[in-house]
């Protein structure tokens, strides 16, 4: 019997079993493990069982009363995905999201959740591509979904490696980095941990459902660093600079000196948006706030100094 057939058949047999089946029962009542040597057959069964578990098939090991050997079965309620009752537009939206982001990596998951639902609208145009490596967080998925505490070795910003124990609340993708966000147990505080600084595998500890995710938690805020205070910056803009400023949401405030316009850009970050203000400085002078004006002047002085002389 082909391995794939044996694995599907084992799944069906354990799903249909009314009580846990021992290996010997399985071997007697099916033809799946016909090797004459008991130990050889047993090894093959063990491999099959572990493979199926790794694929997500929930095979339970149970020691029934009066039985010498452990028995195995699959609880249908644990195995089956209950009906989601997705509407046609909901399936279409999910399929479109998968198409935009990572079609190959999402196809099977999408087929599972929509198997008993309607088909997506075939005429939807995928107008964009938003590729994202959705498999990057596979290793952290189980502990997040099952709400299990987790331990991992972590390289801190100053290069030391330290163990961490965390109640993982979720994952965040920000500025091309993945973070696991949760409560750091030892420090009793909300922290974000970069996945690329975890120097070893995540190890689940303890029971599933071990904690609740706090209400109203803003995961993204945890990894956005020190609280950013948006500032509105006023700029004196030459005609050549107007389009750049408009592209950043700048609004006209009124005329400035020498044929310029005064424009206001709301919601800028003093640290993060300094680079943009420096880039447009030949066409747009910061009028205020004064501290932003000083930042730009300081940055420009440094550029001038660095480029003033012919390098040695």
């Amino acid at each position: 019997m082909h391995a794939a057939e044996r694995l599907v058949n084992l799944t069906i047999a354990l799903l249909e079993a009314r009580r846990p089946m021992t290996f010997d029962e399985l071997r007697r009542r099916t033809r799946y493990y016909p090797q004459p040597e008991h130990a050889t057959a047993r090894r093959m069964f063990e491999r099959d069982k572990e493979l199926l578990r790794s694929l997500g098939v929930p095979i339970r090991t149970e020691q029934a009363y009066g039985m010498e050997e452990p028995g195995y079965r699959i609880d249908r309620r644990e195995y089956e995905l209950r009906d989601l009752h997705l509407e046609p537009d909901e399936v279409t939206a999910l399929a479109l999201a998968a198409e935009l982001v990572a079609p190959a990596e999402l196809a099977l998951a999408l087929a599972k959740v929509s198997a008993r639902g309607p088909d997506p609208d075939p005429d939807v145009v995928p107008a964009a591509r938003l590729p994202l490596d959705v498999t990057a967080v596979d290793g952290a998925a189980a502990v997040v979904v099952e709400r299990r505490r987790v331990r991992f070795p972590y390289r801190t910003a100053d290069g030391r490696e330290e163990p961490r124990e965390v109640e993982p609340y979720g994952v965040v993708r920000r500025r091309r980095a993945w973070y696991l966000v949760g409560r750091d147990v030892a420090r009793d505080g909300l922290r974000g941990f970069r996945l690329d600084r975890m120097t070893g595998p995540l190890e689940a500890v303890g029971e599933a459902g071990a904690f609740e995710v706090p209400d109203g938690l803003d995961l993204a805020a945890v990894v956005s660093g020190p609280e950013a205070r948006p500032v509105a910056v006023d700029l004196e803009v030459t005609p050549e600079g107007v389009r750049d400023v408009v592209a950043r949401g700048g609004r006209d405030v009124g005329p400035g000196a020498h044929g310029t316009r005064v424009m206001r850009v709301e919601g800028l970050d003093r640290v993060r948006d300094l680079a943009w203000l420096l880039a447009i400085s030949p066409e747009a002078a910061v009028l205020g706030p004064p501290e932003v004006r000083d930042d730009v002047a300081h940055g420009l002085h440094r550029v001038v100094e660095a480029h003033a002389e012919v390098p040695s």
């Binding site: 069906i12 799903l15 694929l55 997500g56 098939v57 644990e78 195995y79 089956e80 995905l81 209950r82 009906d83 537009d89 279409t92 939206a93 999910l94 479109l96 999201a97 998968a98 935009l100 982001v101 990572a102 990596e105 999402l106 099977l108 998951a109 999408l110 087929a111 599972k112 959740v113 198997a115 008993r116 939807v124 107008a127 964009a128 938003l130 994202l132 959705v134 498999t135 967080v137 596979d138 952290a140 998925a141 189980a142 997040v144 979904v145 099952e146 994952v171 993708r173």
Partner: peptide
């Protein structure tokens, strides 16, 4: 086998990530 297998945690998270990534781009959907 009338019902599909549950999605694994990894598959579930992948779907949610894709939805989160795409939601701004779906317009009326």
């Amino acid at each position: 086998l009338r019902r599909p297998m549950r999605t694994t945690p990894a598959e579930t998270l992948r779907l949610l990530l894709a939805a989160s990534q795409a939601e701004r781009m779906l317009g009326p959907a």
